[in-house]
Design a protein around this nucleic acid. Structure first.
Lengths: 287, 287
DNA sequence: TACGTGTGATACCCACCGGGTATGACAGGG
DNA sequence: CCCTGTCATACCCGGTGGGTATCACACGTA
């Protein structure tokens, strides 16, 4: 048959990501031989070879790469189904199954917008409960896909809206956040070229999907740490305008003339059918 | 655990669609008792009741409805993963795994556009093979989702682009296709109100997702049948401009002034990473 | 009221297979 | 040449998915 059980998918994903049966088995909490066998069975059932076993580890075939991508989406969809079903069945509170909406927002972004949105929505007559899920830099997409979130605030061009429905909420420019004492802090405006290679002030590096881009700047783990490093004159960063809200006295904000505008969207999985979600979207677009 | 196996999803979908354990079991090719038990286990594992067992049959709870929708998406994603992996692994032809692109098109639409697209793409230096998949009225979305197709030509407002990436290719008006002898066939133009209730010429009904909308007109199974019925003066239909290509001598086409324009898009799953697909899209947008 | 009918649930059994352990085959590196 | 690290094979066992037979129950209906 062509059924492709989720267990097999999980196994294959582990092997495809580790490229090593032993480590994959360990990650899966099982022994290596059954894992080998399961992958062999999967390959036989699909009629396709997914891995090339070299002497010394394995590597993916073309079909394996396809299954890695498509399987990720499929696994996310099934865990999303499980999570959302669990939440929908939230054990009988009075008033029937209250479906809480999970809203994913980048931790350090859109404070005012979020505040306005939550206030406006809470004032709606039949407002559902909204749980705000703080998320990392690019995590909202993943959270929407695997069902941890039902709706998210996203920021192009940092987030990709591919695969989601969305409505634009606002657009803003970007600023360079510098130590207040730095010479450039006195400027009226800067260009990306200006801030790209300040010799004594490297650009801070945020993790993207768990890894840091290369560069001379410090690796940033959270916003407070970044604020401190900027205040200490050790680094600088580029942020949307609305980041002014959390700047310190030791910081200076200088507009960037040629940075692409940051557009905030509200985004949700395209097949959503929830009334609460529809209400939230309506509220958001009316802000 | 929170794992939610594919088998369980299949079982639940069957029961949720049939709303009857016996019929669902029959559809699944198994006996009823194991199915009952499997659903019970699923409910216990999720900690949620999915079905309400009434004295005569069953009906869905709120959580059950959620799982029905989310589970459909998840199942489609897994079968898509299987199908695309199989195709990607197409047994070693010379020149490596030739990935054929599966292009879903509404059977009776966009003849010229499709012709132009295929010709232009075939002229590209590294063109992949393209297999054209004829599909029903609204079937392209489903085919993209479950992996039968990699890319599709879609027509808003008939198709929904939700959940796909897409590029607009062309827009056209709509026409009323009438029997040549009918009084209205002589008119220069018509409005929707004009054709909505012609007493002796009811609007033909196409199936949408397998079911026919209500109305007095005949139920249409394929385009030839429709063409015949129109030629016989028994019905009429509304089509995009490009349908003029296949009209018979016994047909008359009259522009509709107030019908919403039909926009043809090329659409594909948002996470696609295929070079061949990228080439086809590039070709299409340059037409 | 009693019985037939159709529903899903329960009881029990068996075979299959998913998982474990032990071991093999094989290629590199010191 | 052996040691190491890799994945594959061999074999065993327990859990469980699936089958059959039957139950419990609600509803018509005579």
């Amino acid at each position: 048959m062509d059924t492709l059980e989720t267990r097999e998918l999980r196994y294959f994903m582990a092997v495809a990501e580790e490229l090593h049966f032993g480590r994959a088995a360990e990650r899966l909490g099982m022994a290596q031989p059954p894992l080998s066998r399961a992958i062999q069975q999967l390959e036989r059932r699909l009629g396709v070879s997914l891995l090339e076993r070299n002497r010394r580890g394995v590597c993916l075939t073309g079909a394996g790469e396809v299954l890695l991508h498509e399987g990720r989406a499929a696994l996310d969809a099934t865990t999303a189904a499980a999570r959302r079903t669990r939440r929908a069945g939230g054990v009988g509170r009075p008033g029937g199954p209250r479906n809480r909406l999970m809203l994913a927002v980048k931790a350090a972004a859109s404070h005012e917008l979020l505040q306005k949105l939550l206030d406006a929505y809470a004032a709606e007559p039949d407002a559902a409960e909204i749980e705000v899920l703080p998320s990392g830099m690019c995590e909202q997409e993943e959270m929407l896909r695997d069902g941890r979130a039902d709706v998210a605030l996203m920021h192009t061009p940092f987030n990709s809206l591919a695969g989601f429905d969305s409505e634009e909420l606002m657009a803003e420019g970007q600023i360079a956040v510098l130590p207040a004492g730095h010479p450039l802090a006195a400027r009226e405006a800067l260009s990306l070229a200006d801030v790209g290679d300040i010799p004594d002030l490297p650009l801070a590096r945020w993790p993207r999907h768990g890894t840091y881009p290369p560069g001379p700047g410090p690796e940033i783990h959270d916003q407070t740490q970044l604020a401190q490093l900027i205040a200490l004159g050790r680094t600088m960063a580029v942020f949307p305008d609305s980041a002014r809200a959390w700047l310190w006295a030791e910081h200076a904000a200088v507009p960037l003339t040629d940075a692409s505008p940051v557009v905030t969207h509200i985004a949700w999985p395209p097949h959503s059918r929830s009334l609460a979600l529809a209400g939230l979207i309506r509220t958001a677009t009316r802000l």
